[in-house]
Nucleic acid binder design. Structure first.
Lengths: 326, 326
DNA sequence: CTGAAAGCGCTTACAG
DNA sequence: CTGAAAGCGCTTACAG
């Protein structure tokens, strides 16, 4: 089935068929009816590839995340999908697993014109060949930042949020606060670490213990905590940069026969549902994940519609949620 | 940048350029070099849309899930993505949220030739216009079944698994076993309910309490459990058809001031990491989620390569994991 | 309001 | 081994 067949069936030209398909122009209503009828009876569906090739618009955006199993990622993706759908866009998901090869091959979709733009939650510094691509390309970073390049981003003030969490632990009487961070190729990891360090030094507290998780998973959190517990001087509090990591830390603490928060207080990050699932329930920093996703799409669409538009930097609010774990 | 420009640059025809791009045929090595050189210096990337239009192959598959935030879904999707990548395919994710409209519009990608096939985890009976599409279309159901139509599927024996779980609870001494099920438009929900009922009737146990969750989420599980707890005769055990639902149930039990498993034993389903995150850790039925995803892709690819191939039905193994919750 | 025609960027018989 | 040409299925000035 092609537009040709429909044209023949309806006794009009392909141009006319195309016009009713795009309900553009004014087509004489009798012709419109005949076309519509032909479409109906032949169950015709336009070929999207042809359309996109012709218009050089794909109405698809590529979303690259490092781990879709992280509930925060999933929430952001939901927001992205909602807003994309409202604007007639679809998303292509690439679950990079922080794998450079996979990321690189995904980026081929962009140069191959399969997608109109990209939203990344991955660390920028890990994305290859970026310098040659950015600038020409609608791109937004989501819950993460780009130092260089003309790239929009939407996120929260990570340093502030981190400082707030650490201060809370200190005020609570904790003396030895450890940090379970994501690897430092992520800008947000750098910022949160900065917050952690700055509060400690302000308060003249010289205990410092940092573990880096290679991914935002329960397992990574658990082994990070196990490492912390192996040290001669154990922490009495731990701030993990994701709820998933925090859940892993809590499991490790439990396995070691210690209690949260009595022996070790725990604070997470993200404010996902997971924080309510664990016991004791997790104190955490809530990010407006859905909205972050939605705004990422808005920024991206603006850039797609107007490539000259300058990069924007959107800072969203965050909220500290006090629960039983700290 | 188009193949034309490269041809001009290299001083050959577009056909030759195309040949080296597809490293088909034998191109004289001097010409190959010149083309490769031209490609390099102009940073050329082939337009995928044009290629796909011409070859009528998109190398993309549509994946429809009801809720990507459900860790089981996320794991299956990871498996799908891995296997797809190994075969040069990409995935388009549609997080339907069980929304008919969204599902329907996604299906347009198929008829629009944007994807070569579909993998669904959604309930079949909810997908609209299926009868007109199936048969012509490479399609596989994943962790779910189709009664009708020529559709392949891969999953586990849900009835057996469910019976095993219920029997475990009964053997443990539980007298009043409730079920938190997904809505019955899902075939697997029907099968697991059948397992639940058959064991109870075999054993002459006439307590029956079933709650239906509208989605596989923590919240839905929590409210289902709250409903069960409102009944005059409370259950002393509950079998939830997903770990996420079970986590919600545990939260409700905790909120009601009761203990798992002493007051109410809980068994989940899926064997996701979540089962290790909650306290007490969750007894559950493990599905080989990653492999389910991988095999779904294999089946699909076989169908794409050979449309005449009959539908296949793949049954995977499952495993009961006993932990503290039951 | 409508149609003939060009063209988006590829691939692939076909002929040489 | 290579090129000219047709064609995938659309959209969109352009002329009428």
């Amino acid at each position: 089935m092609s537009i040709q067949k429909i044209a023949k069936l309806a006794g009009v030209s392909v141009a006319t068929v195309s016009r009713v398909l795009n309900n553009s122009d004014s087509v004489k209503s009798k012709n419109r009816e005949r076309v519509l009828e032909a479409i109906r009876e032949s169950n015709y569906q336009p070929n999207l590839l042809a359309r996109q090739l012709r218009t050089s618009r794909s109405s698809m955006i590529l979303v690259m995340v490092s781990n879709i199993a992280n509930p925060f990622c999933a929430d952001v993706v939901k927001g992205i999908e909602e807003e994309a759908e409202m604007n007639g866009y679809r998303i292509l998901l690439c679950n990079s697993g922080s794998d450079i090869e996979r990321s690189k091959s995904s980026l081929g979709l962009l140069s191959g014109k399969m997608v109109d733009g990209i939203i990344t939650m991955d660390a920028f510094s890990r994305l290859p060949d970026l310098s040659t691509m950015i600038g020409q390309t609608p791109w937004v970073q989501c819950a993460e930042y780009a130092d260089a390049g003309d790239v929009s981003c939407v996120g929260i003030n990570d340093t502030d949020a981190s400082e707030f969490a650490i201060r809370h632990l200190l005020e609570r009487g904790c003396k030895r606060v450890a940090l379970i961070n994501h690897d430092l190729s992520y800008k947000y990891a750098q910022l949160r670490e900065r917050g952690y360090k700055s509060v400690l030094s302000q308060q003249g507290n010289d205990f410092e213990a940092i573990e880096y998780a290679s991914e935002l998973s329960f397992h990574a959190g658990r082994s990070a905590m196990e490492n912390l517990l192996r040290a001669p001087l154990k922490p009495d509090a731990v701030f993990a940069v994701s709820d998933t990591l925090a859940a892993g830390a809590m499991r490790a603490i439990d396995d070691a026969g210690m209690k949260v928060p009595q022996d070790i207080a725990v604070i997470g990050f993200d404010g996902t549902e997971l924080a309510e699932m664990v016991s004791p329930q997790l104190t955490t920093i809530e990010q407006p994940s859905r909205d972050i996703g939605r705004h990422a799409v808005s920024l991206l669409l603006r850039k797609i519609d107007n490539p000259e538009a300058p990069a924007e930097r959107l800072m969203m609010g965050w909220r500290f949620i006090a629960r039983a774990s700290a």
